[in-house]
């Protein structure tokens, strides 16, 4: 059962695809409170890839390392840090844990190449990210809203999308 740790993956990628891997900067997630204990920052243990080269790295994972199975694309909106982070999760068909690639995009212009032409399985993940977070995947064949209706404007899963309701009253602790 293949098992490739994140450090080994970074080393392999640094050797074969120089410049594709970035050093992850710590994420603050929440703005530091004025008093009380500091929540501490978060440094991801996964491989951070330059967004423009995500297709190249993903194809390397598929063709050279045999991780053919793209399981998930998860978007996280780190509002305080001003980035969207996309987590790509690849598996080997023989089993074993995942290889995770992450890419960070600036919130002002979230745009990166699409994986759908190479992995048809990325289709709905990318449409979902476009619908709820407004991330543009260049080269996607059918980048349309998937959950909301086409006439709708705005990206409801962003942390700064305005919301009203009982759950949002008195949210401040």
């Amino acid at each position: 059962m293949p098992h490739l740790r994140a450090e080994d993956l970074r080393e392999i990628l640094g050797r074969d695809l120089p410049g594709a891997v970035q050093d992850p900067s710590p994420l603050q997630i929440v703005p530091p409170p004025s008093h009380g204990p500091q929540p501490g920052s978060f440094v991801t243990g996964d491989t951070l890839v330059e967004p423009g080269r995500i297709v190249e790295v993903a194809l390397y994972l598929r063709d050279s390392l045999g991780y053919t199975y793209l399981s998930d694309i998860a978007v996280v909106d780190y509002l305080a840090d001003g980035v969207f982070e996309l987590g790509y999760r690849f598996y080997h068909v023989d089993g074993g844990p995942a290889l995770v690639l992450k890419a960070r995009l600036p919130r002002e212009s979230p745009e990166l190449p699409s994986l759908t032409p190479d992995w048809p399985g990325a289709n709905f993940h990318e449409r979902e990210a476009f619908d709820l977070y407004g991330i543009t995947f260049v080269g996607h064949p059918f980048l349309r809203r998937i959950y909301m209706w086409d006439e709708f404007e705005g990206f409801p899963m962003r942390k700064d999308f305005p919301k009203q309701g009982d759950k949002y009253i008195g949210e401040e602790e």
């Binding site: 929440v30 703005p31 509002l79 305080a80 919130r107 002002e108 705005g154 990206f155 962003r158 942390k159 700064d160 999308f161 305005p162 919301k163 949002y168 949210e171 401040e172």
Partner: peptide, 12 residues
């Protein structure tokens, strides 16, 4: 507040 969905964010 940056994390509170209370008003309109500038980009929205």
């Amino acid at each position: 507040h940056a994390l509170k969905a209370r008003g309109v964010a500038p980009e929205i």
